[in-house]
Design a protein around this nucleic acid. Structure first.
Lengths: 326, 326
DNA sequence: CTGAAAGCGCTTACAG
DNA sequence: CTGAAAGCGCTTACAG
């Protein structure tokens, strides 16, 4: 049941049916009504696949997020999807594992699917993938990540500064033994570690490698990392956790070990997800404007798809979110 | 740059290129190598849109979740997407608001996009939508919801029994004043309320309408509902919250009001999301096999798309997850 | 304002 | 084993 059947039944040409369907050209009221009636009657559903082929646009966008995706990603994703939807695009979600093959395969799938654009929230360790992306001519926006050398616009905060500010906040609260739980695999993670070191350095607090443990951005990994820190028996009066979800795990580990928060150990998170205001104790955190990242990434992608010029870097502001945990 | 250019360059027909691309028929090693070389050299990317048109399959599936989506949905979604991906399908996510128009529009979009199947996790109040769905001939699976009268296979738990069991658990812990925070808009929610009433009835605890408040499945709504319950000044020794996320909000409200958990008020959640094991206090909950729901829904959808017969109802087991909150 | 026809980039019987 | 050709369901110059 295609446009042709409708045309025949309404006694018009397929061109006319197409025109009333898309409103692309004026069609006399008379014919329009006939066509509309047939469409209604036959329960006709337009075929976007055929449409996409001739238009060379699918009105689909791809969104690539890490498989171990955090609430942070969900929040970005939710906003981006909303903005894209309002502009008439659907969103294809791809959760990639960080295996060499997986990301490549997924990107190929997206390219083959002829999405109109991609929002990338996942870094890979494989430079080949990036070469591939560059060649593809695909409109791409990086959200919350920084991959130097790629010619794609980025939307993110200044992770170095944000981490520096977070550490300084703990210092200002008279903390002297600040442990760190970092998350591996992201260049923004590395920048956050550097910000932490810098802040310590500036006040002559000596930085010790053993005060750092690495998690994988999940709640459980945060709990385990905290557990490892506590087991070392070093003096710790606070811990800066580079994602709120890991911080929730860290809180659990601290409580399980019988320590009080913040009296024995203060906890500072990173991200400022909604949930952080509801934990017990409520979580102090370096807040990213998460939803804004999603909105901006989507809007920039829309501009890119229209062929407009866009800023190569959109730097958003972070801030400190107070909480009982510090 | 299509299959035709590749064919010309390799000195073969488009049919041959198509065959080596898809491995559908044996092609002599000689030609195959030539074709592969050109594909490599030209950085050719197959066009799935054209392919979908002739195959009448897109290898895309639609996933419809409520806009106010919970961690519960994310977990189902993650698993379903994984299973579908392994079978070669991509997933289109649609978050629908419960406005009459929104869901209809989204479904139309999905139908027009010619997805191969749909997993529905959202109930709507609009019967028209369901009529539309029935007519569409689309393979559809309902995950975690129950819409009587629809001929689509369902994957879910027995919500009535689960809620009954949860209430009974509180009763077994000597609770006499069990408040309820329900979530509106779902038939499974109604069933859970009935299970609660039934359990109270059986032990001659009189049920009071004022002991029930309704939230909207968000953390904040749970906090507010709990706040309203506390403000009534009725005796409450426990609260059964029909989603873990709302329970997290309820815990916050109870703590903010200066009560102890579980000594003053015990809290029992529903869902058993991963996070519940990390809250403070850890959350006791009626656990759904969330990930299993996602896996089964996807597998059933795959069967349906293959044209196989499937069970009209797959009932999975719930269980009671202990926690410090009770 | 309306229609006949070409073309989007593939797949696949059908012949050879 | 390989190729010429039809066809998937649309859109849109081009003519009238």
């Amino acid at each position: 049941m295609g446009i042709r059947e409708i045309a025949r039944e309404a006694g018009v040409s397929v061109a006319t049916v197409s025109r009333v369907l898309n409103g692309t050209k004026y069609v006399s009221e008379d014919l329009k009504q006939k066509v509309l009636a047939c469409i209604e009657k036959e329960n006709y559903v337009a075929n976007h696949v055929a449409r996409s082929m001739v238009l060379k646009r699918t009105f689909n966008c791809g969104l690539i997020i890490p498989e171990v995706s955090e609430l942070y990603h969900q929040m970005v994703f939710t906003q981006a999807e909303r903005v894209l939807e309002e502009a008439g695009y659907k969103t294809l979600v791809c959760r990639v594992k960080d295996s060499l093959s997986s990301e490549k395969i997924y990107l190929d799938l997206l390219l083959e699917s002829r999405v109109d654009g991609i929002i990338l929230m996942h870094e890979t360790s494989n430079p080949q993938v990036y070469e591939h992306l560059k060649k593809s001519q695909m409109p791409i926006v990086l959200a919350g990540i920084d991959i130097p050398g790629l010619p794609f616009p980025q939307v993110r905060i200044d992770d170095y500064k944000a981490s520096y500010d977070g550490t300084q906040y703990l210092i200002s609260r008279k903390k002297q033994h600040i442990a760190l739980i970092s998350g591996g695999g992201y260049s923004v993670g590395d920048k956050r570690v550097k910000g932490y070191k810098k802040a310590l350095e500036e006040v002559n607090l000596n930085f010790e490698e053993c005060m750092i443990e690495t998690g994988s951005y999940t709640v459980e990994s945060g709990k385990q990392a905290m557990h490892r820190l506590l087991e070392k028996g070093k003096t710790i009066d606070s811990v800066f956790v580079l994602s709120d979800e890991m911080a929730i795990g860290a809180i659990r580990a601290i409580l399980d070990a019988g320590h009080r928060i913040p009296d024995d150990i203060a906890v500072l998170g990173f991200d400022g997800i909604t949930l952080s205001s509801y934990t017990n104790p409520t979580l102090a955190s370096v807040r990213q404007p998460i939803e804004e990242i999603g909105v901006q990434a989507a809007e920039i992608l829309l501009s890119l798809m229209k062929g407009e010029e866009v800023a190569s870097l959109t730097l958003l502001n972070h801030c400190l979110m107070q909480g009982q945990s510090v």
